[in-house]
Amino acid sequence: MGSEFVMFSLTPMLIGVLASVACALPGNFLILRRQALIGDAISHVVLPGIVVAFLLTGVVAAIPMLLGAAGAAVVAVVLIEAIKRLGRIEPGAAMGVTFTTLFAGGVLLLEQSDTSSVHLDVEHALMGNLESLVWLRATDWSSLFDPWALAGVPEELPRIAVVCAGVILLTLVFWRWLKISTFDEGFAQALGLPVGMIGMGLVITAAVAAVAAFDAVGSIIVIAMFICPPAAARMMTNGLERQVWWSVLFAVVAAVLGYVLAGYGPLWLGGDNAVSAAGMIATVSGVILALACAFGPHRARVGARAEA
């Protein structure tokens, strides 16, 4: 656990942790608003956005891809709202229709276009390439203080760090608005709060987190992290503040444990190859949710909505 860890595991693990936390935080509010699927939707629609960005620019570069993904996410959100309103369909169905259609469109585009020469394929879109985000300039822990080595960290790391910090800041600043408009929208509106803007801001924040995380870790983690840590956290406590802390803890545990298990678990079991870190992180988050369902102190009330 010395130089090898710093070089090959530290950065992917950090990226996994930051991506998980960035998704889990807005996930808390999305779940309470019964909009959890929106994270799922966004992470799916990112694919066509990225493919279109690639087709337009011809390069695999971060900025156009992020813009493409963000554009697709906005298109999806607008489409979902339009389908919901015009078709008078329940939100879950509207999201389902939108994201499967756009994702399928993305797959078709990907097959039709000549992306074989670049690292852009369906597998990458699903699972990301967490393992490849290594820090080659690092020698050991002292590299953390070496400017030359620090300049060589994978570009995904600072990007997801900035997004994660932004999500944390927004959650703190708008805490009261988020809480009250999630609990009682009518009352929030009567207070004069900009309820529509708060809801839209939450979805946009989730979209930015999803796009940044997708870039680094693929859509599997994004989908899992929007739902599993907050849902498990809800069963640990009956207070929103504590729920959010629990969700962050679960997200971190899932990311670290998942990464370690994926890298070393198969070796411990006598296998030869590591398994996908993204897949394992998502799996661990699912296991945490299952454990919370089985043993969480406040599991009884979840889903038991007041009949009204």
Binding site: G186, L193, T237, N238, L240, A306
Partner: peptide, 30 residues
């Protein structure tokens, strides 16, 4: 304003005093 009781999800993770404090949000701001 007191909305209809059934208009909110009473499973929301919060306490009684917390709900009452929501009535003070206008004064205390963000």
């Amino acid at each position: 304003y007191v909305p209809q009781r059934a208009s909110v999800d009473w499973d929301f993770p919060t306490t009684v005093i917390d709900v009452v404090m929501m009535g003070l949000y206008r004064q205390v701001g963000l």
